Simulated assay, not measured.
Amino acid sequence: MDRSYFSSSWYRVAQLKPRLRSQVSIHRTIFRGQVWYVMQDRTSGRFHRFTPEAYFIISLMTGRRTMQEVWDSACERLDEKVITQDAVIRLLGQLHASDVLFGDIPPDIEEIADRASKQHNRKLLSKFANPLAIRVGLFDPDEFLNATYPLVRPFLSWFGGVAFLVLVAYSIFLAAMNWQALTGDVTDRVLSAENIVLILIAYPFIKALHELGHAYAVKRWGGEVHEIGVMLLVFMPVPYVDASESLAFRDKWQRALVGAAGIIVEGLLACLALIVWLNAEPGLVRAFAFNVMLIGGISTLLFNGNPLLRFDGYYVLSDVLEIPNLGQRATKYLGYVVQRYLFGIESAETPATAQGEEFWLFSYGVAAFFYRIGVMVAIVTLVSQRFFVVG
C-alpha cells in the first residue's frame, strides 16, 4: 500500500474503541446509480451522507474493536478502495462533532455540554438569520397526524393520483374556455386594496393545507413529523412543518413526492376554486375563490413549484436528479468553470461527484441566476406601476 494512505497523527486514534450512539440509524439509498448511506440522528434531527467505504469503517465501530483493528479490516476488505487514515481521522472528527459517537474514554462532560449549547445556539440563530423568513416552532403534531391519517389515506394512492390528474385536465379545459374572463383587467383586480385584504386572509389558510400535505406524505411512507410552527415570511405568519424525515427514504420518488405534496395540494385547491368561481355569483365568495386560484395556481407555478427558486420545486428536482444540495453545488461548479477554463487554474476541483452531474450543475446554475434576475425585475416593474415608491 502506498505510504500516502498513512497519517502521522494516526497514533492519536489507533487505540480508541468508538461506537455509534443508540439514537442513530443508517439508511441505504441510491443517488444517480451510486450507493450512499444516510445517517439520521433522531435527537438533533440532522442527517449525514457517507460513501460505502466510509460506511464500512463506521459499521466496524462496535465499541469492541480498536481503530487500528478497524483500519486493518478495511484494508483487507476494501483493498485499493480503502480511504486514507487522514480521511478516517476526519470522519471520526465529524461524527464526534455531531455527538453521535461514543468512545471507550470517559467523555468530557463540559465539552459535550459546551458543544450541545453551541449547536443549540446555531440552530436558534439560523431561525432568525433571515429577517424575512423567521421560524418559530410551536408543538409536536405527530399524534394528530396519526389520528387523522386514515381520513386522507385514500387520497395518497394511485386512485387519488388519477383523480387529481383528471381534475387538473378538466380545470385546464375550463380555464381555456373562460380565459378572457379570468385575465381581463387582472392587474387592477389583484392590486386593489380590497383584494389585498382577501389575499392576506387566504394565504395562511392555503399554506396551512400545503404544509399538512407534506406532513401526510411523510406519514404515507412511514416517517414521522415532530415539529410544526409559524414562519414569518416577509412578516406574514405562515405555518410550516419539519418534513426532513423524508431524507432517509430509500426511493427517490418517495422523497420527491413529499416535496411535491404541498404543490399538489395547492393545485387541487386552485382547481376547486376555479369551479366555485365559475358557478358563484359576483361577491365575496367569488372574489375569495379568485384569490385561491391566484395563490394556488399562478404563484405556485411561478415561485413555489418552480425549481429555479429554492422552494418545493427545487427540492423535487434535486431528488429526481439525485443531486443533493443542487443549488449550492451548481454555484460552486460555476466557480470551478471560471477558475479552470477562464483563469487556467488546473488545481481547481470540481464539485461533481458522479457521471452526468456536470451538465445539470452548469445548466441549473446559469438558468437559476437569470430566472431570479428576471423575476425580480418583473415584480419591481409590476409593483412600481401601481405603487411607484414601493416599486
Rank of each mutant, 00 (worst) to 15 (best):
M1N: 02
D2R: 01
R3G: 00
S7W: 02
Y11R: 05
L16H: 02
R19A: 03
Q23N: 12
R28T: 09
T29N: 05
F31L: 05
Y37R: 10
V38C: 04
D41K: 02
R42A: 13
T43N: 05
T43P: 00
F47G: 01
R49S: 11
R49E: 09
A54Y: 00
Y55P: 02
S59E: 15
T66N: 15
E76H: 10
E80M: 08
T84R: 11
Q85D: 10
Q85V: 04
Q94Y: 12
H96M: 08
A97M: 13
S98P: 01
S98C: 09
G103W: 01
E111I: 05
H120E: 14
K123G: 14
L125F: 14
L125R: 12
K127R: 15
L132W: 10
L132R: 09
E143A: 13
L145D: 00
T148F: 11
T148S: 15
P154I: 03
F155N: 02
L156V: 05
L156K: 02
W158H: 06
A169E: 08
Y170I: 08
F173L: 04
L174N: 03
W179P: 02
W179G: 10
D188N: 14
V190I: 15
L191G: 06
E194V: 08
L198E: 02
I201P: 11
I201S: 06
Y203R: 13
F205N: 02
F205S: 10
A208M: 11
H210R: 08
V218E: 00
V218A: 04
G222V: 04
E227P: 01
I228F: 04
L233R: 00
F235G: 01
A243I: 07
A243H: 13
A248K: 12
A248N: 06
A248Q: 11
D251C: 09
R255Q: 13
L257H: 06
V258L: 07
G259V: 01
I264D: 00
E266T: 14
L268N: 13
L278C: 07
R286W: 06
F290S: 15
I298S: 14
F303H: 11
F303R: 05
G305S: 03
L308I: 04
L317G: 04
G327D: 11
G335E: 14
Y336K: 07
E346D: 14
E346N: 14
S347R: 14
P351D: 08
E357C: 15
E358S: 15
F359L: 15
F359P: 10
F362V: 10
G365F: 09
V366M: 13
A368R: 01
F370A: 09
R372N: 15
V377R: 08
I379E: 07
V383A: 06
